[in-house]
């Protein structure tokens, strides 16, 4: 088993942390994992992305050209990664930040209004966790429970009080994606 995930968005949307949470969950489930950020001379508001690879065996390339799993938190990321995706892959799009539908019929595109859901829960900063929850619907190797455990285990003490809202964000994203994927399948 090997799964590659690219998470992309504006700097400040929690792209890198979203990848780290998945990496922690994969590690805690006994999997091999790599997390690598784009580390160009970027600044807040610019684009940021990271690649997470999860596998059962020693991981070769930490980078992937045609990912099977992508989270696009904004339109530039959607435009960039949609054409690069593996056939049959799942693309989670933050519907709050894009103004177009899917161009490809050979991948599963899941639209999640991550900004609105996050705001309903009460913290705009949870956008990334809503999207991660949605991705988990297409990543059975990492369960939502493992991810919650990972958050609990690795979130600094000063942020532990935010856990319930993070859990809610994950579950809302997961449910939203599961409904859409059920229709597709």
């Amino acid at each position: 088993m090997q799964k590659e995930i690219i998470i992309s968005g504006f700097g400040g949307q929690g792209v890198l942390f979203a990848g780290q949470v998945i990496a922690y969950a994969a590690m805690d489930s006994g999997k091999q994992v790599t997390w690598i950020p784009s580390y160009g001379p970027e600044m807040r508001g610019g684009t940021a992305n990271c690649t997470v690879v999860i596998a059962d065996q020693e991981i070769g390339s930490p980078l992937v050209k045609n990912p099977p799993l992508v989270i696009a938190l904004n339109l530039p990321s959607y435009d960039k990664y949609e054409p690069m995706m593996q056939v049959g892959g799942t693309l989670v799009v933050n519907q709050s930040m894009v103004d177009r539908g899917a161009k490809r019929a050979d991948i599963n595109t899941v639209f999640v209004s991550a900004n609105e859901i996050a705001e309903q829960i009460g913290d705009k900063k949870l956008t990334n966790m809503v999207a991660v929850g949605a991705l988990l619907a297409a990543l059975p190797e990492v369960t939502i429970e493992t991810l919650e455990e990972a958050l609990k285990a690795h979130l600094p003490a000063r942020h532990q009080h935010l856990l319930p809202k993070n859990y809610e964000a994950l579950r809302r994203g997961f449910e939203s994606a599961k409904e859409q994927l059920a229709v597709i399948v």
Binding site: M27, Q32, V33, W35, I36, Y39, P62
Partner: peptide
């Protein structure tokens, strides 16, 4: 290289 320097792994 920068890859190994910047990447995270268990």
């Amino acid at each position: 290289d920068g890859c190994v320097g910047q990447m995270m792994e268990p």
